[in-house]
Design a protein around this nucleic acid. Structure first.
Lengths: 252, 252
DNA sequence: GTGTTTATCGTCAGGGAGACGACTATGATC
DNA sequence: GATCATAGTCGTCTCCCTGACGATAAACAC
C-alpha cells in the first residue's frame, strides 16, 4: 500500500507547561490569562503550538523561556547551571478538549527556583504565580477574593498530574534541589519538601538523611543566616540523581 | 487575534505500542515486520494512526486488540479481568523521526500475560514475540541466526523507555501481576520479577515480602503443581496498586 | 543577659531486608 | 517403595534505616 497523505487526519500539536516553584512556603504554578476565545479571560497553563521544524523538548524549552526567561538545562547535564529542570509529563488528546479543532497537547513539567516575577510579554496582569491549591479548587475564592474559575481546557487535570509527578519524584530523586537556588541550606531544602508535600518534617531526621546520602549534597564551605537563627552550611546539588534509599513521604 | 487555521503546522499523530510479556523466563516484546517503506522488511513496534474521533487511550486499546486480541482494562478498574494493563508511556516528536512527514507518536506501554502466539492479520511471519535484549542489541544475531537489524524509526528508544518504565514500576506497584494469568503462584510471580529485572531473587525472602504486603495477593484456596515440586498456593492479584514499602531491586 | 530562632549532633527502639538453615510435599528414577 | 531432585514455606539472626525526641550551638532581638 503506497503512502497516502489523506490516510490520516491532521492534528494540531501544542506543548503546555506546568511550571512549579515554591514561594512563601507554598507550591505555586505559573498561570497565564487567556486573551482570546475559547475560555477568554480564564486562567490557563502557558503553552503554544509546536513549530514545523521543532522537537517537542525544544518547543517546551522555547515556551518556558518566553514565559519566564528561564533556560531549560538538559536533563543529562550536570548540576544546577541556573537553568530549570524540564521533562515531558504526558500527552492529552481527547477529541473534545479544544472546541476549535483537534489538538494534541504534550504537557511538560518544569521546576524552577523562586523567581522575581512573571514576565509575560510585559503584561503583569496576564501571568502570575498561584498556589496550586488555589488553581485546583473549583469554585473557591482566590487570593484577591475573586471567584476562582477552573483553569481553561483540561488544564486542571494537567496541573494535577504535574503536581503529582513532582510530589512523587522528589521522593526518589534529588529533584527537589531544582526548586532551590544554586546554593542553599538544608533547612531551605527541607522547606521545599514541606511545601511540595504539604507536611511538616522533623528537621533533625531530615538533616541526617540528606547529609548522609552520598552525592546528594556538596558543601560549598560557606554559611548563611538568611533564615535567621544559627548560621547554616551552604550546599550545592551533588551529582546523584537517584536517591537510594528514597526520601520517605510521611503517610497521610 | 482571531483563530487562524493556517497558524499551526499539521501533524500526523500515531500511537505505538510497547507490549511486554514474560516467556520462557525472558522479557519479550511484540514486534511486527514492516510491509512497506520506509524501513520495509524491518521489525518495528505495532502502532497506527489515531483516528479523527478517537482519544489517545482508545486508539492504543484498539491497536492492542488488533495485534493481540487483548482487551485493555481500565487502569482504574478492579483486579485482573483477563485484560492487559495499558498506560501512556511518552511522546516522540523529533521532526526527522519519520522521513515521510511530521509524525508525533504517543507511545503506550502494555503488559500482558504469556499469550499463545501473535496474530497479526493471520500472517504468522509478520509478528513475533522477541526477547527485548535481542531487539535492543544492535547488529547482533537474533534467534534464528539472522543478523538482527535495529528496530525501525526511533522504536529502539521507545522500547528501551518502555522496558525501563516496566522495570521501575514493578518496584513500587503491584503491576507485576499483569504479567501473570488470573491465578498464579508466588513462584510464578517471582519468576516474573526475575525475568523483568534480569536478576535472581531469594525465594524465601520474596515469599515473605509478597505474602506480607497487605492487599497485594489474595489466596484463592487452590493449589497447583504445574511448576513441579511441592504444590504451591494459588493467588489472585489483590486490590492494592501501590506497594509500600516497595519491592527492592537488588543493586547490580 | 535573656529569650527566640534555627542548625546540628546524639541516643534509643522498632521494622524491614538480606543471608541462610530447616522442613514439607510433590514427581521422577532406580 | 526408597531415594533423589525440585519447589514451596516457615523461622532465625543481624544489620541498617527510620521515627521520636533530648541536648547543644550560634546567631539576632530586646
Amino acid at each position: 500500500m503506497p503512502y497516502d497523505p489523506s490516510a490520516f487526519p491532521p492534528f494540531a500539536v501544542t506543548v503546555d507547561l506546568v511550571v512549579l516553584t515554591v514561594r512563601r512556603h507554598a507550591l505555586c504554578a505559573l498561570a497565564v490569562r487567556r486573551g482570546e476565545p475559547p475560555f477568554q479571560g480564564r486562567w490557563a497553563l502557558p503553552g503554544g503550538f509546536v513549530r514545523a521544524d521543532e522537537d517537542l523538548a525544544q518547543a517546551a524549552a522555547r515556551e518556558l523561556a518566553e514565559e519566564t526567561g528561564l533556560r531549560a538545562h538538559d536533563p543529562d547535564a550536570a548540576a544546577q547551571d541556573n537553568g530549570a529542570h524540564l521533562e515531558q509529563l504526558a500527552t492529552y488528546g481527547d477529541p473534545k478538549r479544544d472546541p476549535r479543532m483537534r489538538v494534541v497537547s504534550v504537557a511538560h513539567l518544569a521546576l524552577a527556583p523562586d523567581l522575581p516575577a512573571p514576565r509575560a510579554g510585559g503584561d503583569a496582569n496576564s501571568a502570575r504565580w498561584a498556589p496550586v491549591e488555589e488553581l485546583l479548587q473549583r469554585g473557591g475564592y482566590g487570593r484577591e477574593g475573586e471567584l476562582a474559575a477552573p483553569l481553561a481546557f483540561d488544564h486542571a487535570q494537567i496541573l494535577a498530574d504535574g503536581v503529582e509527578r513532582a510530589r512523587s519524584k522528589i521522593e526518589y530523586s534529588s529533584l527537589a534541589t531544582a526548586f532551590c537556588p544554586a546554593e542553599f541550606t538544608v533547612g531551605e531544602l527541607r522547606r521545599v519538601y514541606e511545601a511540595v508535600w504539604g507536611v511538616a518534617l522533623d528537621p533533625r531526621n531530615f538533616h541526617r538523611k540528606v547529609t548522609g546520602t552520598p552525592g546528594f549534597l556538596v558543601p560549598t564551605g560557606g554559611t548563611t543566616t538568611r533564615q535567621g537563627g544559627r548560621p547554616a552550611q551552604l550546599f550545592r546539588a551533588g551529582g546523584a540523581t537517584l536517591l537510594n534509599p528514597p526520601m520517605l513521604r510521611p503517610e497521610v
